[in-house]
Simulated assay, not measured.
Amino acid sequence: MLSLKLPRLLSINQVPRVFHEESIIFGYRHPRSSATDCILSVFQLTNETLNIWTHFLPTWYFLWKLFALLYTLDFWNEAFAWPLIVYMLSCCIYPFASSCAHTFSTMSSRARHICFFFDYGALGFYSLGSAISYSAYIMPDKWVNSTFHQYYVSVAVLNTIVCTGLSCYSRLGLPFVHYNHDTIERLLELDRPKLSKILRVVAFAYPYLFDNIPLFYRLLLCAGESCAHNETIPVHYRHIMLAFLTAFLFATHLPERLAPGCFDYIVGHSHQLFHICAIIGTHFQMETIIKDMTLRRSWLIANSPLPTFSGTIGAVCVSITLSCCIICAFSISLYWKPNFSKKAKKE
């Protein structure tokens, strides 16, 4: 009986362009779904079902890891653990935000944009969480207390703002100027899809590449005893490999581009694989951060200043506040329609 109540699915020709996914032909939900319909669709095989579950289930795994760490670490009295807690919070938030975005993105075209604005903001927070933990535990020995190390987290905060702003811009263009004189919405994502895709890839890739400068140096260029070579190195390589595979899948839309309509539901289209690779990569990253924290603990406490409130919780608060301001500006602009009627009458 439940199957009779599930929302009806549509083809690509039955939904507006803003809902189209490249090379995905069938399995679209109604573009004016109610919140109840969106929740019911989680238990229905649509072209979004696996996108939702591949991030919703890992959220609980990362939450379990977070609570396990809170139980074993003296978080309140040990500043050395603060970066790890911040990182674990970001690991919980970004997959949950993504699963919510995919779940409720068909309530309307505006809701779709707003959902993914928050998804992008959560990814920016994850980037900052990675940078804060890398600053505390991953930095090569010879870079500890260097000028780069001192400004590393501050630049990462700026990168988070750039990531959120550029990814939101890749959907709409400039806020408050995406309506023409007929009050018809003009989206950068629809008008210039290739540029939109390039901007979004850059928005996600640039913070990742910056965050991993210490790790790239430690793995590829550093030689000698001051490079912190230890048993985490092979796992770091796995994380990096999965990160680049994730970027490749996101940018290329393979394999569905080779056979449109064949990967609409099952595991196989790029966004599903992108989610899976991202989660596995995050798992490996988490394991390396925890191991480096444990193995290098004595040396780091003796040679590096302890993490500060401003460099961890404070940086997160600043980043979240500014990112929310950007998201609000883009979201409000979706409802802002300039009144051209008086101007038209004068002309």
Rank of each mutant, 00 (worst) to 15 (best):
L4F: 13
K5F: 14
L6K: 09
P7T: 08
R8L: 13
L10A: 04
Q14K: 15
R17D: 15
V18C: 07
E21Y: 07
P31Q: 09
C38M: 07
F43G: 12
F43P: 09
T49P: 06
L50Q: 04
T54A: 11
F56I: 12
L63P: 00
K65W: 06
A68R: 12
F75G: 00
N77E: 12
E78T: 15
M88N: 14
Y94I: 06
S99F: 04
F104P: 01
T106Y: 06
S108E: 10
S108A: 14
A111R: 05
A111P: 01
R112Q: 14
F116V: 09
D119K: 03
L123W: 01
G124H: 04
Y134K: 04
S135M: 03
H149M: 12
Y151I: 15
Y151G: 09
Y152G: 02
V153R: 05
S154A: 13
L158F: 12
I161C: 08
V162R: 00
T164C: 12
S167W: 02
S167I: 02
R171A: 05
R171G: 00
T183L: 12
E185N: 08
L190H: 04
P193Y: 04
K194L: 08
F204M: 06
N212K: 02
I213R: 02
L219T: 04
L220R: 07
L220M: 13
L221A: 13
G224N: 10
S226T: 14
I233F: 09
I233G: 02
Y237I: 13
H239W: 07
E256K: 09
P260H: 11
G261L: 15
Q285I: 02
I290Q: 10
K291E: 10
M293C: 12
W299T: 06
P305H: 10
T308P: 03
F309H: 08
G311M: 02
T312N: 07
A315Y: 00
V316M: 11
C317Y: 09
S319P: 01
C324Y: 09
C325K: 08
I326Q: 01
I332N: 10
S333C: 11
P338Y: 08
K342S: 12
